[in-house]
Amino acid sequence: MALKATIFKVDLQVADMDRNYYADHALTIARHPSETDERMMVRVLAFALHAHEALAFSKGLSADDEPDLWQKDLTGAIELWIEVGQPDEKRMLKACGRAAQVVVYSYSATSHIWWNQLAGKVERARNLRVVNLPAEATMALAKLAQRTMQVQCTIQDGQIWMSCGEHTVQLDPALLKE
Protein backbone atom coordinates (compact mmCIF):
# COMPACT_ATOMS: atom_id res chain seq x y z
CA MET A 1 0.00 0.00 0.00
CA ALA A 2 1.38 3.40 -1.00
CA LEU A 3 1.91 6.05 1.64
CA LYS A 4 -0.19 9.16 1.28
CA ALA A 5 0.93 12.76 1.42
CA THR A 6 0.67 14.64 4.71
CA ILE A 7 -1.34 17.85 4.49
CA PHE A 8 0.00 21.04 6.11
CA LYS A 9 -1.92 24.31 6.44
CA VAL A 10 0.12 27.50 6.45
CA ASP A 11 -1.14 31.02 7.04
CA LEU A 12 1.72 32.98 5.50
CA GLN A 13 2.16 36.71 6.01
CA VAL A 14 4.66 38.22 3.60
CA ALA A 15 6.26 41.62 4.11
CA ASP A 16 8.72 41.98 1.23
CA MET A 17 10.16 45.47 1.47
CA ASP A 18 12.50 44.82 -1.45
CA ARG A 19 9.51 44.32 -3.82
CA ASN A 20 6.95 46.43 -1.91
CA TYR A 21 4.77 43.33 -1.61
CA TYR A 22 2.61 42.85 1.48
CA ALA A 23 0.00 40.10 1.53
CA ASP A 24 -1.42 37.14 3.41
CA HIS A 25 -1.63 33.71 1.79
CA ALA A 26 -3.53 30.65 3.00
CA LEU A 27 -1.48 27.71 1.74
CA THR A 28 -2.33 24.02 1.69
CA ILE A 29 0.80 21.94 1.20
CA ALA A 30 0.89 18.24 0.44
CA ARG A 31 4.18 16.85 1.77
CA HIS A 32 5.26 13.74 -0.13
CA PRO A 33 6.15 10.81 2.17
CA SER A 34 9.80 11.03 1.07
CA GLU A 35 10.02 14.79 1.63
CA THR A 36 11.67 16.16 4.77
CA ASP A 37 10.42 19.03 6.92
CA GLU A 38 13.48 21.00 5.79
CA ARG A 39 12.63 20.67 2.09
CA MET A 40 8.97 21.52 2.69
CA MET A 41 9.91 24.65 4.64
CA VAL A 42 12.31 25.70 1.86
CA ARG A 43 9.33 25.41 -0.52
CA VAL A 44 7.35 27.71 1.81
CA LEU A 45 10.30 30.12 1.85
CA ALA A 46 10.50 30.04 -1.96
CA PHE A 47 6.79 30.83 -2.11
CA ALA A 48 7.31 33.80 0.22
CA LEU A 49 10.24 35.11 -1.83
CA HIS A 50 8.19 35.07 -5.04
CA ALA A 51 4.70 35.52 -3.56
CA HIS A 52 2.12 36.37 -6.20
CA GLU A 53 -1.57 35.54 -6.63
CA ALA A 54 -0.73 33.27 -9.60
CA LEU A 55 2.14 31.40 -7.87
CA ALA A 56 1.19 27.82 -6.99
CA PHE A 57 2.64 24.61 -5.65
CA SER A 58 2.75 21.89 -8.28
CA LYS A 59 2.66 18.12 -7.82
CA GLY A 60 6.36 18.44 -6.94
CA LEU A 61 8.02 15.13 -6.13
CA SER A 62 5.00 13.27 -7.50
CA ALA A 63 5.61 14.55 -11.05
CA ASP A 64 8.89 14.40 -12.97
CA ASP A 65 7.93 17.12 -15.45
CA GLU A 66 6.79 19.79 -12.97
CA PRO A 67 8.73 22.12 -10.67
CA ASP A 68 8.14 22.58 -6.95
CA LEU A 69 6.37 25.88 -7.60
CA TRP A 70 5.34 27.67 -10.74
CA GLN A 71 3.56 30.74 -11.96
CA LYS A 72 1.63 30.68 -15.21
CA ASP A 73 0.06 33.52 -17.14
CA LEU A 74 -3.54 33.51 -18.36
CA THR A 75 -2.58 31.62 -21.52
CA GLY A 76 -0.94 28.82 -19.52
CA ALA A 77 2.60 29.84 -20.44
CA ILE A 78 5.05 29.32 -17.57
CA GLU A 79 6.41 32.63 -16.32
CA LEU A 80 8.33 31.30 -13.32
CA TRP A 81 9.67 27.80 -12.59
CA ILE A 82 11.07 27.21 -9.09
CA GLU A 83 13.12 24.14 -8.15
CA VAL A 84 14.20 23.25 -4.61
CA GLY A 85 17.27 21.09 -4.00
CA GLN A 86 20.00 20.07 -6.40
CA PRO A 87 18.53 19.29 -9.82
CA ASP A 88 20.82 18.04 -12.57
CA GLU A 89 21.80 20.19 -15.55
CA LYS A 90 19.40 18.44 -17.93
CA ARG A 91 16.42 19.28 -15.71
CA MET A 92 17.54 22.90 -15.29
CA LEU A 93 18.15 23.42 -19.01
CA LYS A 94 14.82 21.81 -19.90
CA ALA A 95 13.11 24.15 -17.42
CA CYS A 96 14.90 27.12 -18.99
CA GLY A 97 13.42 26.12 -22.34
CA ARG A 98 9.90 25.88 -20.93
CA ALA A 99 9.75 28.95 -18.66
CA ALA A 100 10.53 32.64 -18.93
CA GLN A 101 12.46 32.55 -15.63
CA VAL A 102 13.90 29.63 -13.63
CA VAL A 103 15.07 29.87 -10.02
CA VAL A 104 16.80 27.07 -8.13
CA TYR A 105 17.10 27.14 -4.33
CA SER A 106 19.79 24.78 -3.05
CA TYR A 107 20.07 24.26 0.69
CA SER A 108 22.38 21.33 1.43
CA ALA A 109 25.75 21.49 3.15
CA THR A 110 27.11 19.92 -0.06
CA SER A 111 25.63 22.56 -2.39
CA HIS A 112 29.05 23.99 -3.20
CA ILE A 113 30.18 20.60 -4.58
CA TRP A 114 26.99 20.26 -6.63
CA TRP A 115 27.36 23.79 -8.00
CA ASN A 116 31.06 23.40 -8.87
CA GLN A 117 30.14 20.40 -11.03
CA LEU A 118 27.26 22.19 -12.81
CA ALA A 119 28.28 25.83 -13.11
CA GLY A 120 29.99 25.49 -16.49
CA LYS A 121 27.22 23.30 -17.91
CA VAL A 122 24.41 25.81 -17.25
CA GLU A 123 26.34 29.04 -17.81
CA ARG A 124 24.63 29.64 -21.17
CA ALA A 125 21.15 29.65 -19.60
CA ARG A 126 20.35 33.36 -19.42
CA ASN A 127 17.01 32.93 -17.64
CA LEU A 128 18.44 30.81 -14.79
CA ARG A 129 19.11 32.08 -11.28
CA VAL A 130 20.66 29.81 -8.62
CA VAL A 131 20.50 30.73 -4.93
CA ASN A 132 22.17 28.86 -2.09
CA LEU A 133 20.52 28.94 1.33
CA PRO A 134 22.77 28.30 4.36
CA ALA A 135 22.30 24.71 5.56
CA GLU A 136 22.27 25.72 9.24
CA ALA A 137 19.42 28.16 8.62
CA THR A 138 17.32 25.70 6.61
CA MET A 139 17.76 23.06 9.32
CA ALA A 140 16.47 25.65 11.79
CA LEU A 141 13.53 26.30 9.42
CA ALA A 142 12.68 22.58 9.59
CA LYS A 143 12.14 22.93 13.34
CA LEU A 144 9.34 25.45 12.66
CA ALA A 145 7.29 22.86 10.75
CA GLN A 146 3.88 22.00 12.23
CA ARG A 147 0.70 20.62 10.65
CA THR A 148 -0.93 24.03 11.14
CA MET A 149 1.36 27.07 11.06
CA GLN A 150 1.18 30.82 11.17
CA VAL A 151 4.36 32.01 9.49
CA GLN A 152 5.59 35.55 9.04
CA CYS A 153 8.23 36.26 6.42
CA THR A 154 10.00 39.60 6.33
CA ILE A 155 12.38 40.41 3.48
CA GLN A 156 14.56 43.51 3.51
CA ASP A 157 17.84 44.31 1.74
CA GLY A 158 18.23 40.68 0.68
CA GLN A 159 17.94 39.34 4.23
CA ILE A 160 15.08 37.08 5.21
CA TRP A 161 13.42 36.46 8.57
CA MET A 162 10.95 33.60 8.95
CA SER A 163 8.99 33.48 12.20
CA CYS A 164 6.54 30.97 13.60
CA GLY A 165 5.35 31.60 17.13
CA GLU A 166 8.27 32.62 19.31
CA HIS A 167 10.92 31.20 16.97
CA THR A 168 12.66 33.24 14.26
CA VAL A 169 15.18 32.10 11.65
CA GLN A 170 17.37 34.56 9.76
CA LEU A 171 18.59 33.59 6.30
CA ASP A 172 21.27 35.27 4.21
CA PRO A 173 21.01 33.69 0.75
CA ALA A 174 24.06 33.57 -1.51
CA LEU A 175 23.52 34.15 -5.22
CA LEU A 176 25.45 31.55 -7.22
CA LYS A 177 24.19 32.54 -10.68
CA GLU A 178 22.21 35.59 -11.78
Rank of each mutant, 00 (worst) to 15 (best):
Q156G: 06
I113G: 01
T110H: 05
G165C: 07
M139H: 06
A54V: 04
L133M: 09
H167M: 15
K177A: 10
Q159H: 09
E136R: 14
D16W: 02
E53V: 03
P134I: 08
N116I: 01
D24M: 10
Q150D: 12
A109H: 06
K121T: 06
F47K: 04
A145F: 00
A119I: 09
M1V: 09
C96A: 14
R98S: 09
R19M: 09
M162Y: 01
A30S: 14
I29G: 02
F8N: 07
V169F: 02
S34E: 08
D68M: 07
K59G: 10
Y22P: 13
R126A: 15
I155F: 08
M162H: 04
G158T: 08
T36H: 05
W114R: 02
V44W: 00
M92N: 05
W70Y: 05
T75S: 13
V151D: 07
A125Q: 07
Q159T: 10
V122L: 06
T28R: 12
A174I: 14
L128Y: 04
V151R: 03
I7T: 15
D24I: 06
R98K: 13
D73M: 05
E79R: 13
T148R: 13
T6D: 13
N116Y: 04
K72F: 00
R129T: 15
G158L: 05
R43N: 05
H112Q: 12
N116Q: 15
E166T: 13
N132P: 02
D24L: 12
V151A: 08
C153E: 01
Q117P: 01
R39V: 01
H52E: 04
G85Y: 03
D64G: 09
W115D: 00
M17C: 12
R43L: 00
D65V: 03
L176Y: 12
A140K: 10
I160K: 05
G120D: 09
D172Q: 14
H52T: 01
L49I: 04
G60V: 05
A145D: 00
I113D: 10
A77W: 01
E38F: 00
L133I: 07
E83P: 10
D172G: 10
C153V: 15
D73T: 07
T6C: 04
M41I: 06
V42D: 04
R129I: 12
Q101S: 10
Y22V: 15
Q86T: 14
R39G: 05
S163N: 09
V14G: 06
Q170T: 13
Y105K: 04
E53Q: 08
V102Y: 00
Q71G: 06
M17G: 13
A26M: 08
S108H: 09
